[in-house]
């Protein structure tokens, strides 16, 4: 039997024919990157290929790297293997990587969602023989509501807090979720204040031509009383820190797909949990996989055991692959292990 076009080895997703890796977790010579989250775009590769909207964030996060960028729909040939990018809808610059060699097509989707968030280019299904998919929320209890509904909940909560003179603090990942929250906010209620990490990320995105709503960076000499009535966006790592506690009368909300489950919400001890995710929900995963018309599905991270079993019952050749995704700072890695040993 011929070697599979893409294989999982100890460094990442490897294409032997083209001698390159997709989202490798150990240093390699040539890395094709689906998106700039740190569990997918890691430090230490000799050469990177990514979507051009990932450029500035990757420079900001990884420093002076050798980076080549490409547009959606564009393709390049690496050692005779055709590589092209299609929108994944996960965050700004996220791409599905289509790999074609001798008529065989594989798509490595990285992380994706189907709903158009208004910031990232909306997900486009790509026909392939084998689809490499995440399944962070690959259980049928995860079903998202439209984002307009979630944002109206967030704005109602913010408005009420502002009327009662409280500071609204909302947590979401610095790349992706933070910007998505920003553009869903009703700025007639008040002003947006940003944690430094998010402000840095936004500046990188703006250098890349992304336009974001006006917001103020919280610097060391920021008068915290000023945030009363406004909304502060911070990364999950700042939750419960002295930095957050110093704001006056805080009402704290958490934005994540995990908030769909009451137990997870109560564990966070958040005043509010908003079910807003940059990953596909159960129906989204099944729809996306169906639209690729693939025969085989490889599940990289999330509820891989349950979801692959379900796909096999639907008639797919579905299998799990062991990867290092979903363990860094993106929602997939947020599970419950942030403080783990």
């Amino acid at each position: 039997m011929a070697q599979a076009l893409l294989q999982f080895n100890d460094k990442g997703i490897y294409c032997a024919a083209g001698d390159f890796y997709i989202d490798p977790w150990k240093p390699v010579d040539r890395a094709v990157i689906t998106h700039a989250h740190s569990d997918h775009a890691r430090w230490g590769h000799k050469h990177y290929l990514a979507h051009h909207l990932s450029r500035e964030v990757m420079y900001y996060r990884l420093g002076d790297i050798s980076l080549e960028t490409m547009e959606y729909g564009e393709s390049t040939t690496i050692n005779g293997v055709q590589v092209s990018f299609y929108p994944a809808g996960h965050i700004v610059g996220s791409a599905q990587v289509r790999v074609e060699y001798k008529g065989e097509v594989w798509v490595a989707s990285g992380d994706y969602k189907l709903e158009d968030d208004g910031l990232s280019a909306p997900f486009e299904p790509v026909k392939c023989h084998t689809f490499i998919s995440e399944c962070t929320f690959g259980m049928p209890v995860y079903k998202w509501r439209p984002q307009a509904e979630i944002f109206s909940g967030i704005n109602d909560w913010w408005r009420l807090n502002a009327e009662e003179g409280r500071t609204t603090v909302i947590a979401g990942y610095s790349l992706g979720k933070a910007q998505r929250i920003m553009q869903g906010l009703d700025l007639s209620i008040g002003s947006i204040y940003l944690h430094g990490v998010i402000a840095n990320t936004n500046e990188a995105l703006e250098r890349n031509g992304i336009r974001l709503p006006p917001a103020e960076r919280i610097t060391a000499d920021f008068k915290r009383e000023q945030a009363r009535g406004g909304i502060v966006i911070c990364p999950p790592s700042a939750v419960g820190s002295p930095w957050m506690r110093k704001f006056p009368s805080v009402s704290f909300g958490y934005c994540s797909g995990w908030m769909a489950i009451r137990g997870a919400k109560r564990r966070r001890a958040a005043d509010r949990g908003f079910v807003l995710s940059d990953h596909a929900d159960w129906d989204g995963l099944i729809e996306a996989i169906g639209a690729t018309e693939c025969e085989s599905v490889c599940l990289t991270h999330g509820s891989t055991a349950s979801f692959s079993r379900y796909l096999r019952e639907l008639g797919y050749d579905a299998f799990e692959a062991e990867t290092h995704y979903g363990v860094e700072d993106d929602e997939a890695g947020e599970t419950k292990v942030e403080e783990a040993v």
């Binding site: 049928p140 209890v141 079903k143 769909a260 009451r262 137990g263 349950s306 079993r309 019952e313």
Partner: peptide, 26 residues
């Protein structure tokens, strides 16, 4: 009603940790 097999219901229950909530979500 939810069109899911028994095993998947049980695994969902493991994730949610509450029968009433599992059913409401499914």
């Amino acid at each position: 009603l939810a069109h899911i097999p028994v095993w998947l219901f049980e695994e969902s229950y493991q994730v949610v940790g509450d029968l009433g909530e599992t059913i409401a979500l499914l």
